[in-house]
Every structure is written in structure tokens, then in C-alpha cells.
Design a protein around this nucleic acid. Structure first.
Length: 554
RNA sequence: GCGCGAUUAGCUCAGCUGGAUAGAGCAUUGGCCUCCGAAGCCAAAGGUCGCAGGUUCGAAUCUUGCAUCGCGCACCA
């Protein structure tokens, strides 16, 4: 709808230039906006103000010339006004809004889809937690965010792949093996010390116990190094499948699991370093190989190969990202914990050194989650191994509440997750509030069907019966949905969908409480059913993008 | 010390990339069920958009400085 208006305005502008009433010939990037106030119409355009300077005319005067041109066009509008400092306000005709309802039914679950992505290939890499422990609540937020970003991009017509990067190389895997081995020894009655830098969580003991149950003291017989290597492998696999199970429960399916080790196996890490060296971005100092990231705005150069010959994590990240683009992705999105923000400049430097636009890498930083129970913060510390796992939270509050709560804030702002609130079945709980709106429509439908009537199909509802301001406002709200999706996709901000849903649900509940859907007049009932079922479709589509279900009954 | 990010109603936060009178939800106060789900709705009240300059037709939004808070600053991953 915005795009149609925009082209109408552009045409009017061209006509002004052709008629020489305007002379600058400029076509500024003007905006079509939805005004805050209904007095200001359905849409407003600010182009007259933007042209004031080049035209050396008063904005309202320019607006007048534009309006004269616009009025000659066949309009979707009833009225155009000039207002304020020089806005042109459009009051669309009702038939225009009614058409939205037909569109919603015609597209159904597809309503909200667009092709602004034009099939461009995007990879979203998220979670990517080390396979050294179960997912905790912080990973959950990253998971919900990454998955929703991916979905919203798909809705906007991008070709999206979801990827999980497994950090299965490097000494953390060794630490994991050692941790399990030491617990194993302890459980076998050996008096060994358990160092602080080992993983402290109870799950390590569980894994050790499993080894005992299955193979007894077998590992005490063999060489320590060998035993540790064994535990490193089997432990890593066990934890990884646990992570996968948690993600499944959370409704998240990755298209690809990508192993860091595989980069080494294919010599890609070496190749990445060689590319940088060939292009003159590296140097040697103190026995180490450095990447001159300061050439690209980083505040310090970074080591790729340590003086002991071991490559750094950053080196494999260079290889990994280089390889992502070789796989043909136009845009790569990394979802990280916000505590890694210091890492951003060096990753951008990688892009620049590879000769790519740094915008081709988007990094979404996800802030901390404060878990609250009865208003008190639940203490968490990864070091001590005392943390609340994602699974525990999903089991307690459910997948839907969990996902919705994670998406209730912008990802880069901290989030208080109130466990009591998430479980509450009342208006205070935003998830229930939104889902309830959906269930309510379903309930109305059941009543209709029980009384032997059928639900309206496109074409047999007399939409002109929808004359109430609340009905038109609700329809306008529905019409906005596709634009909300596009905005959320292009800005990588899935929380916009969450806010939209709360607004839509509020407007629906308000309407429901003021007016009965089923009334004596059959045609009116039919039209209202048509409207509320359109609301149902849009709520369902939007919840689906967030990975939240749309229950018929609650 | 340097860098990044925050600062909007009592609390938690939005603010559509510079637009018109800055908005929600909690919390507070007062109302609404002989009626499709009260698991809901309506109303009131609540503001120096951290402070001070700058940019322009126009700033919560962009810019500079300052203040407070958080997070980063490894030849760790």
C-alpha cells in the first residue's frame, strides 16, 4: 500500500517538473509514514518539506502544487490534505481497506510474505555454544533470536540457512576430557584433585558415572592421555546430542552443523592465513604471526599463530568466515553474546581484508538474561557450574512463553525474565494475552458452528457492513503487518513482531469488549466474523514467525 | 587509561532509521459480566527523553563535550 502511494507521489512530482511548476528536478528519498494521529489521515508524506531548500519555496506551497497533480490521478484516496509544516496527508477510501481483508484470506498463511529479499542468500549462525556443557538460559535467548531473525528473513523473501558452529577444536575439548576423567577417577575412589579450570558442573559427574556403568574401571587401566582423549571425544558427542535435543524441544532445527575441526582437516585455516599473508596483511613478531587488523579500524593487531606454533581461535574464524562466502552467501549473520562485542572490529577487519563490504557481515549482539523468581534474581555463575539450563526453563514455563519472552526486548538490551509472570494465565503475561486473542476467535467460531451456521468465505461477507471506527482501525492494523515483517527483516530486529502482536491483540480485545461479533443482523455478523478471522490469521502468522504456537483453546 | 553500549513515566521497556500533541505493559486509583471466553475491557494520573552546546524548516533520534552505569581490552576459547 505504501509503495503504491509512493509511486503516485513520484509521478505527481515528475508532472510538476514537466509542467515547470517545480524546477529543481530532485527526487529525494522521502518517506511514507503512518501518522500517530488519525486526524492526520492514513498516510503522510514529507517530500514537500524536503524540497523546500532546493526549490527555495515554502513547504506548504510545494505541497499545494503536488496535491494539484495528485488530484488529477485516479486515487485510492477520498481526500488529500496539506497539514502542519507541509505534510501531505492521505485519507484512503474504505474500499481500499476492505481489500486488505480479501488479501489476507487469499494468501492465508502466506500473508506477510514478500520478495524484498529477492532470493538473496543469507546465513544465520547462532547458538554455537561450545560442546562442553548444556545450554543455559543465555544460549536460549540467542537461539530464539537467531531462529526468529532467520524466519523473518525468510518471510521477506531471503533464502536462509541456519547454521551451528561447533567449536570442537582447541584445548577446551581436552579440558572436557580431563574433567570427565578426573571425576571418573574420583568416583572410582581415587584421591585426585579437581582443578578450578576444569568444568565444575554436575553433568560432568553424570558422564563419568555413565562410563563406569558401561565399562567399569576400564579407563583406569589405560594411559591417562589416552583415557582423556577418549572422554574428550565421547563426552563431546554426548553433550552435543544433548544440546541438539534441547534445541529440538525448543523447536529449533539447524540446516547445518559446522565443525571447526573440519576447517583444520581441510587445511582451510592455513589457507586463510596464507591469503592474508599474500595480500600483505600479516607480519611476524616475537615468533608469532599477526594480522594487521588495525589497518581496518581495530585498536590492536591480532595473533593468528602463536609463537608455540598453535593457531588461535581467531585464525579458524578467519577461515570459517572466508569459507562462508565461498559457499555463496551474500549476507552472513552472526548472533553473539554481547560480552563478545570487543570481537566485532576484528571480524569486520577480516571482511575488509577479504575485499568484501563489511556490511555483508551482520553481527547481532544478544544481551544478558536476568532470571527472576518472585522478584529475586536467580544467581548464576558458569564457573561454579551453578546455572539454570535452558531445558529447565522450558520445562517450567513452556516453549511458547520462553520464546516470546526472549523476543520481548531488543536483543541488545538486557532482559528480565520473570518465571512467575511467564507462567501466569492472565493479561499481565504478554504471551497469554496474544494467544488468548487467537483462542477467542476460535471460540467464537465454535459457537457459530455449533449453532449450525458456517463461517464466511471470501466473497460472501458484505464488508461494507464494517463501518465502526474500531473495525476500520483493526483493519488498518492488519494491513500494516507485511510492512512490519519487512522492517523487522531489514533491520534484523524480530522484537518488532512481538510488539506488533501485542498491539494487535490489544486492539482486538478492545473491539471484542465493545461490540458483539454475533448480532441479530445476519449480514453484520458475517462481516464481523470475516474481520475477526482475518485477525486470527495474522496473529497466527506472526506467532509462527516467532516460533510460538497459536492454540485454538487454552 | 582506551574502546563499545546504554541513560525515555514510580518500575520494565517501545519509539518504524530526522517529522505533527513522545507511546505501551506492570504498579496506583476508580469503574464494567441477566451479554460470543472477565484468561477480558474502559477511565484517571504519571515526562526537563541524563546534562550542555551544534547541525536544519523540524532532534528522543544525527554530532561534540560532560556525568553516571554496564561490558570488553590474551600469543584463552
Amino acid at each position: 500500500m505504501k509503495t503504491r502511494l509512493k509511486s503516485a507521489v513520484e509521478k505527481a512530482l515528475q508532472n510538476c517538473y514537466a509542467a515547470k511548476t517545480l524546477v529543481s528536478g530532485e527526487l529525494p528519498e522521502f518517506a511514507i509514514e503512518v501518522p500517530n494521529h488519525t486526524d492526520h489521515g492514513d498516510f503522510a508524506v514529507n517530500v514537500a518539506m524536503m524540497l523546500a531548500r532546493p526549490e527555495k519555496k515554502a513547504p506548504r506551497q510545494i505541497a499545494q502544487l503536488l496535491v494539484e497533480q495528485l488530484e488529477q490521478q485516479e486515487g485510492m484516496w477520498d481526500k488529500i490534505e496539506i497539514a502542519g509544516p507541509g505534510f501531505v496527508n492521505f485519507f484512503l477510501s474504505k474500499s481500499c481497506w476492505y481489500a486488505v481483508l480479501d488479501d489476507i484470506y487469499a494468501k492465508g498463511a502466506q500473508f506477510g510474505r514478500s520478495d524484498v529479499g529477492a532470493g538473496r542468500r543469507v546465513q544465520v549462525e547462532f547458538v554455537s555454544a561450545n560442546p562442553t556443557g548444556p545450554l543455559h538460559i543465555g544460549h536460549g535467548r540467542g537461539a530464539a533470536t537467531g531462529d526468529a531473525v532467520a524466519s523473518v528473513l525468510q518471510e521477506a523473501g531471503f533464502d536462509v540457512q541456519r547454521e551451528y558452529y561447533i567449536n570442537d577444536a582447541g584445548n577446551q575439548m581436552d579440558t572436557l576430557g580431563r574433567s570427565i576423567f578426573l571425576r571418573y577417577c574420583q568416583l572410582q575412589g581415587r584421591d585426585v584433585e579437581f582443578p578450578e579450570d576444569c568444568y565444575q558442573g554436575d553433568y560432568i559427574r553424570t558422564l563419568a558415572q555413565q562410563a563406569i556403568d558401561e565399562q567399569g574401571d576400564h579407563f583406569l587401566q589405560m594411559d591417562d592421555v589416552e583415557a582423556i582423549a577418549h572422554f574428550s571425544t565421547t563426552g563431546g558427542e554426548a553433550i552435543r546430542s544433548g544440546i541438539n535435543a534441547d534445541l529440538q524441544q525448543f523447536g529449533i532445527n539447524f540446516d547445518n552443523w559446522y565443525s571447526e575441526q573440519s576447517l583444520y582437516d581441510r587445511d582451510l585455516v592455513k589457507a586463510g592465513i596464507e591469503t592474508l599473508t599474500r595480500d600483505g596483511y600479516t607480519y611476524e613478531q616475537d615468533g608469532a604471526i599477526w594480522f594487521r587488523t588495525t589497518d581496518f579500524g581495530d585498536d590492536k593487531d591480532r595473533v593468528l599463530v602463536r609463537s608455540n606454533g598453535v593457531t588461535t581461535y581467531f585464525a579458524s574464524d578467519v577461515a570459517y568466515h572466508r569459507e562462508k562466502y565461498e559457499r555463496g552467501f551474500d549476507i552472513v549473520i552472526d548472533v553473539w553474546g554481547a560480552d563478545h562485542h570487543g570481537y566485532v572490529p576484528r571480524m569486520k577487519a577480516v571482511l575488509a581484508a577479504l575485499g568484501r563490504n563489511t556490511e555483508d557481515l551482520q553481527i547481532i549482539l544478544v544481551q544478558l538474561v536476568n532470571l527472576l523468581r518472585e522478584g529475586e534474581q536467580v544467581a548464576m555463575s558458569t564457573r561454579s557450574g551453578k546455572f539454570v539450563t535452558l531445558k529447565e526453563v522450558i520445562d517450567e514455563v513452556g516453549k511458547d512463553a520462553c520464546r516470546f519472552f526472549f523476543l520481548m526486548r531488543r536483543s541488545d538490551s538486557q532482559l528480565d525474565f520473570d518465571l512467575e509472570l511467564a507462567k501466569k494465565q492472565s493479561t499481565e503475561n504478554p504471551v497469554f494475552y496474544v494467544q488468548y486473542a487467537h483462542a477467542r476467535v476460535c471460540s467464537i467460531n465454535r459457537n457459530v458452528q455449533e449453532s449450525g451456521l458456517s463461517l464466511p468465505q471470501p466473497g460472501d461477507a458484505e464488508v461494507t457492513k464494517l463501518q465502526l471506527p474500531e473495525e476500520l482501525a483493526l483493519t488498518r492494523m492488519l494491513a500494516r503487518y507485511p510492512e512490519v515483517v519487512v522492517g523487522a527483516a531489514l533491520s534484523y530486529e524480530p522484537h518488532r513482531i512481538t510488539f506488533y502482536l501485542q498491539e494487535l491483540a490489544a486492539q482486538f480485545h478492545s473491539y471484542y469488549n465493545q461490540h458483539r461479533v454475533i448480532v441479530d443482523d445476519r449480514a453484520t455478523s458475517c462481516a464481523r466474523l470475516y474481520l475477526v478471522n482475518a485477525v486470527k490469521i495474522v496473529i497466527s502468522n506472526a506467532l509462527n514467525v516467532l516460533g510460538v504456537s497459536s492454540p485454538d483453546k487454552m
